[in-house]
Nucleic acid binder design. Structure first.
Lengths: 223, 223
DNA sequence: TGCCTTTGGGTTGTATGCAACATACAATAT
DNA sequence: ATATTGTATGTTGCATACAACCCAAAGGCA
C-alpha cells in the first residue's frame, strides 16, 4: 500500500490537477477549456474530465455556459471585497468560538503552528500562503462548529485565488504579530479579543489585496 | 426562446426532481440510491442522473461513498444547531448591511413581501416555508454582497430540510411580529437594530427546531 | 467449528459513439 | 444593401458498453 495518498478515482485526480492549475494561476481568467483537449492531454476520457469541471464550476472557479463550454472565471475587485467581508465575519466568529472552547491541546496546536510559520522562508510565497491558510483552517476547526469550518474552507479557496493572482503575501512582521495576537487571545480564552484580533487581521489583508487589485485593474490584468 | 421555463438540460431536470424529493422528505435519511434505478424511473440514462447526484452531494444533501454508492444524508441535532449558529451570524450581517444600503425600492419590496406573508393560509405548511425562505433570501440580496447572498442561500437549503423533517413551521403571531420588526429596522436604516432583530428571529427558530429535533430523536426518527 | 480464500453478483467508474445545440458564414430574397 | 434563412462545423450533452471494484456468501483448510 502506497504511503502517499493518491486519488481514488480518475475524476478525483483530474479535479486535483485542474484545481492546482487554477489556484496557481496557470490558467488565465476568461480562457476557454475544451473537454476533449484536456482529456487528451491527461490521457483519460472525457467523462472524468467533465465530472471534475462540474465540481470546479460549482465551487466558483469555472463558469459553464450551456452547450457552449466552460471558461475560467475572472474575478472582479467588488467580488474580492465581498468575499473578504464575509470571511471577516465568519473567521472572527470562529476565533471567538475557538477561544470559548480552548483547552491545552488546542493551545499546543496553535503555538506549534505559529512556530512553524515563523520558520518559513520569507521568499517562498507558495509555502507562506499554504501555511497561512492552514492557520485559518486550524482556527476554524477549533471553533468546534463543522458547518463554520466547511464554509471557511470553501471561502479560503477563492481567497487563495485572489492572493495568488495579486501576489498578495502578507509576510511582513506585522502579519506575524497579528497571528501571535490571535493565538494569544484564543489561548487566554478571551472571546472578544480573539474575534477582534482576527477581524483586524482579515481587514489588513483586505487592504493589501484591494491595493493590488486596483493596481492590477489599471494594468488591465483583471476585470 | 420559449416563454415557459423548462430545464435546459436533462441533468438539470433530474437535479430539480431529486432536490424536491429530498427537501420534501420523500427520500429518507440513510436510504441508498442506485443510479440505474433512478435512471429507469425517470426514463433517462445514468449519465445525467450521475451528474445530478454529484451536485446534490456537494450541496450536502447526499453522501457519496466511493465505489459503493450514494445515500441520503441524515442530520444530527448537533449539525442542525451548528447550521443555525452560522446562519444567525450571516443573516444578521445581511440584515445590518441591508439597513445600511436601504432605499425606497428596497423598502417597497420588503413591505410588499411582509404583506404577502400575512396573507398565507396558516394551515399551508409548504407555502409558509417557501415564503419565509424568500423573505430571508430577499434580505440577503438587499445586503448588496453577492457572496453573502450565495452563502445564505446554500445554508437555507439545509435549513429547509431541517424545517420539513421536523415539521417546523413558525407560524405564530410572534414570528410575524419578528419579521415586521426586522423590516422596520431595515427600513429605518438602523443597522444594529436590524442585525439584532434578525439574530433574535433566527435564535427563536433554532429553539423551536431544537425542541422538535430532541423529540424526534427520542422517537428514533432521526440520528 | 472457525477462519481464510475465492468466486460470483451487483454496483459504480470510465470510455466512446452519436445526437442536440449554438455559432459563424454563405446564399438568397426583398 | 440588408435582413433572413440555410448550412457547415465544432462543441457539449446524453446514451450505452465495458472495466474496476466492493461485498457477501460459499467452499476449503487447519
Amino acid at each position: 500500500m502506497p504511503r502517499f495518498q493518491r486519488p481514488q478515482t480518475v475524476a478525483e485526480g483530474v479535479y486535483q490537477h485542474l484545481r492546482r492549475e487554477l489556484l496557481t494561476g496557470r490558467l488565465e481568467p476568461g480562457q476557454w477549456l475544451r473537454e476533449q483537449e484536456l482529456a487528451e492531454a491527461l490521457e483519460v476520457s472525457r467523462t472524468p474530465v467533465r465530472e471534475a469541471i462540474r465540481q470546479l464550476a460549482q465551487e466558483g472557479l469555472l463558469q459553464i455556459e450551456a452547450n457552449r463550454g466552460v471558461r475560467v472565471r475572472g474575478l472582479s475587485l467588488e467580488e474580492a471585497v465581498a468575499t473578504y467581508e464575509v470571511r471577516n465575519r465568519l473567521e472572527s466568529m470562529a476565533a471567538g468560538l475557538a477561544a470559548r472552547n480552548v483547552n491545552d491541546e488546542a493551545r499546543a496546536e496553535l503555538s506549534q503552528h505559529l512556530e512553524a510559520m515563523t520558520a518559513v522562508d520569507p521568499e517562498d510565497q507558495a509555502e507562506h500562503i499554504r501555511t497561512d491558510n492552514e492557520f485559518h483552517a486550524l482556527v476554524a476547526r477549533l471553533s468546534g462548529n463543522p458547518v463554520l469550518e466547511e464554509l471557511v474552507e470553501k471561502l479560503s479557496e477563492r481567497v487563495m485565488r485572489v492572493k495568488i493572482l495579486t501576489r498578495d503575501v502578507n509576510v511582513s512582521a506585522d502579519a506575524r504579530a497579528q497571528h501571535a495576537r490571535i493565538v494569544e487571545a484564543i489561548s487566554r480564552g478571551d472571546e472578544d479579543a480573539a474575534a477582534e484580533a482576527m477581524s483586524r487581521h482579515v481587514s489588513t489583508n483586505l487592504q493589501i489585496v484591494e491595493e493590488r487589485l486596483r493596481a492590477a485593474r489599471e494594468e488591465g490584468v483583471l476585470v
